[in-house]
Every structure is written in C-alpha cells, then in structure tokens.
Design a protein around this nucleic acid. Structure first.
Lengths: 240, 240
DNA sequence: CGAGCCATTGAATGCCATCAATTTTAGTGG
DNA sequence: CCACTAAAATTGATGGCATTCAATGGCTCG
C-alpha cells in the first residue's frame, strides 16, 4: 500500500467506474447511455469472491443482485438427501440473483477468483422505475437463460455422453466469442467432477469420453483444462 | 346460429372480456386494475386451437404473444437429425411466446382443445411502456419458468425413473391447486409417449414404472389418464 | 520431494433402452 | 348398443451404455 489514497483491500468498495467497465457492452448496464450510467454507479459496489467461495446459498433471502465482471460461477441445487446438480455456469456479463421467490432456490459459488458488481435488490428495483429499459434488458437476459436451460434439458434427455461433451465445449466456445476472446482453444474453469455433474454423467465417463475424442482426433488437449477443437465447424452439424 | 348477433365461428375474434376472465388472478394481466384492463382488452384477440394443432413452430418469427386461458400446451424442440425433446408443458394462466431471439427456438402444440388470448408483440410492448408493472409481472413469470426448467434439469440429471414420474405428478398436482382445482386426483392431458419424452425415458419404462407404483399402492389409476396419489404428503420427502 | 487430490484406466454390475408380442382402450360405423 | 379396427398401453426377453467399484497414474503445491 504505497499511497494514502489506496483503499484497504476490503471485499466491498464503491466506485466501480462503470463507464470503462470491460463487460459493459454485453451486460444489462450496456443499454444505459454514458450520462445515465453515472447514476447506476452510485448504487453499485465492487465485490471480490475468492475461488471456491460461495456468493449465496439455497434458502438465503434474495436481497442482492450481482453482475459478473470477471471469473466464473457455478449454480447448483441440492436435494434434501444430499444429491447435487449443477444447473448452470455463469460468466462475465451475466446477471445473477434474479428470482421469482423470496429465497434462492440454488447455490452460487465462484469457480475462480471472481469480481462482481453488487446491487441492493430494492434499490435496483427503484432504479428500474426511472429507467424501464433496464428492466426490459434484464427480461431479455432471463429469457436467454431460459433458452439455455431448455437446451440443457434437450442435452440431458437425448444426447449421448460424447454429444454432451461436444455441446458443452461449443457452448463455452461461443461464450468466449461473445466476450471477444477467441472461441478456440477453450479453457475449462471447472474440475472434471463439475463437468460430469453438469452433464448428468460420472467423472469416469467424462474421462473415458475425452480419451475417445482425443483418439478420434476431434479434440486436442493441452494439459487437463485447455482444449483445442480440431474441426470446430463440423461439430455442430451432428448436434442440434 | 340462432341470432343475427352471433358471430360466425371463426378462429379469431375480438372482445375477450378480460374483467371476468377465469385466469385473470394468476395470469400476467392480473396486476392491472379493472379500469386499466379495458385497455388491454382492446389489443387482445381470442384464438381457439383444436387438439393436436400447432400454435407456432421452431423457426417461426416471433410476432405474437399468447396467454393460455383453457387447455394445455406442450413445448418441444427438434434437433436437425429429427430427435425430439419436450421441454415443458403449459397450462391456463401461463404466458407463451416470450423469447430473446427473433425466431422461436421451440414448437408449441395444443394437447387438448385450447383457448388463447393473443397479442401482437409490438403492440403489447408499447403497452408495457404505459404500464411498466405489466412487464415486471412477465419478468416474474419468466423467472418462474426458469426455476421450473432448473428443476427439470435436476430431475433429468439425478432422478430415477420412479422419482421422475412422482415428481411429474406432484408438479401437475400443484399446477392444479394454483388454478383452484383439486390437487388430487390429477389428470394427464398427454399420452404416455409425451410423458416418457419429457422425463427422458421410454414409453415402456413409464408403463412399467406406473405398474410398480400401482403395485406398491403409491398411486391408484382410474382409466389411463386419471391418477389418485395415495399418500401425497409423504411423497415430497423422498424427493427434492 | 512427498503428500494429497485429481484424472485416467480397467472390470463387473445394473438400470433403462430396444426389440417383440399381447392386451386394452378409444373411436367409428353398422 | 355392439362389433370392428387402429392406436395406445402393457408386458416380456434381451442387450448396451453408462455406472459402480477398484486400482493406477499424474499434477500441484506446500
């Protein structure tokens, strides 16, 4: 800490500097013009979540919304008998915390060190009244999430293990492209156990299937978490 | 047609009479007061879809929204190689047609003779500008749909055949209760093939599992489409 | 460099799918 | 109302893909 002007490294601090935010173009705040986004800045706070930490838990009261600026997050549900199912992964630009319930129906946990923009629920809802198009934008994002969930239902209901993994890789690829990063190769920010759980498979099946995909020259792996898709354009044909 | 005042039996006609609509309390229009709902009435049309007919198809342009007044609808996706996956069923009070895309990503088909309230997309979106809380209500409904889709992901990823069927019955039961009908017995408005497809199973497995549930006295069937849940309150414990 | 976790590979089991046949239901017309 | 027919549902026999159980290999990080 060199200068007195440096804030202490607390988890929550003000002044997110929305105007030059890296996810502004794809996030909900992107529909606000420069003059209006200053108002949003005054009601938002930065929050850093270290890898492996929870952002909120199933059963917690919904009183905060989040915007992901950096990192990645897994969303999972627990049944009363302890079974766990990951229902989604979220990435920079995604809006987190919307619910039709008063309590969260799922857990959110950081897969890597993650930076969030945090809003008080009531305050942001009042902000909607002044800028209705912000709420429209969020409706749009939720609809997008719903479409993704329906795709996942298709995957779980009809795809083989090999198809599930390939579809998963393509999803990550297009996610990266949306963020302006390269769509190939891709990086898996989660362990095999999370991939398996998300895809309705076991770790062993994921591992075996990856070995097959490597043998068949469909993918190439650099280490255990970076994957190059060999004929990426050919893959979608035999899915969807 | 006894009186000249009777309209011809066309599929689409005006004057839905929102004020005394049977689904008003649970549908999106329920947040409007009596004086405001008259304005909604002027932009809505009635539409009847006979059993088995499509409401819209995957790839169709999104230019109409629907509100289900009576009947039931199945939502399903097709992959390019012809595989089909039902991703949801919709019932009276549900809002149909929202999308983040310009084209529908799924098909909607009436499971029984169904009555809809129809809105032009652009017109209803302009209506939102005048009554923003209508859009808030729809955001709420979409969030509810998303939560249901996440539940279905859990079901497909972690539940056994027996659990899938029981969960499905409980869902229908609570749907009926929301409509003020009895939650037990329940009526299946779709054939076995649709149940199987929705639950990620085959017709044969559904049939076999139903036989087991009957043998174990967990359900009692009246005909092939009416089901009485014997100890309904006990069932949820061993799910969720 | 070693400990512990994560990933991979192997062998055997099991649940649900597939293939096949029968029974029941529902719809139609005599 | 009943016979007739086609579709839907049920039941049986077999098989396969992914799981489960078990062991080995390979990172990663103190």
């Amino acid at each position: 800490m060199k200068h007195p002007s440096c804030r202490p490294s607390i988890v929550t601090k003000n002044n997110p500097k929305c105007a030059q935010c890296s996810v502004r173009l794809i996030a909900f705040c992107g529909i606000l013009e420069d003059k209006d986004i200053l108002q949003l800045e005054t009601i938002s706070k930065n929050k850093n979540i270290p890898k492996g930490n929870s952002i909120f838990l199933q059963g917690d009261e919904v009183k905060t919304f989040y915007n992901i600026k950096q990192g990645s997050v897994k969303i999972y549900k627990l049944s009363h008998d302890g079974r766990k199912q990951i229902v989604g992964f979220m990435y920079p630009g995604d809006f987190l915390g919307m619910s039709d319930q008063d309590l969260f129906t799922y857990n959110a946990e950081a897969l890597e060190d993650t930076k969030l923009c945090q809003f008080n629920k009531t305050v942001l809802e009042n902000f909607f009244l002044k800028f209705p198009k912000v709420e429209s934008k969020i409706l749009n994002l939720v609809n997008h999430e719903l479409a993704a969930a329906q795709d996942q239902i298709f995957l779980l209901g009809k795809y083989s293990a090999k198809e599930r993994l390939l579809q998963f890789f393509l999803n990550i690829s297009s996610q990266r492209e949306k963020l302006g990063w390269g769509g190939n190769p891709i990086r898996l920010s989660m362990p095999r156990s999370d991939i398996a759980n998300y895809l309705g498979l076991t770790i062993e099946t994921v591992s075996r299937t990856l070995s097959e995909l490597k043998k068949d020259q469909i993918i190439k792996m650099i280490g255990t978490h970076d994957i190059f898709l060999n004929n990426k354009d050919q893959i979608p044909q035999y899915l969807t």
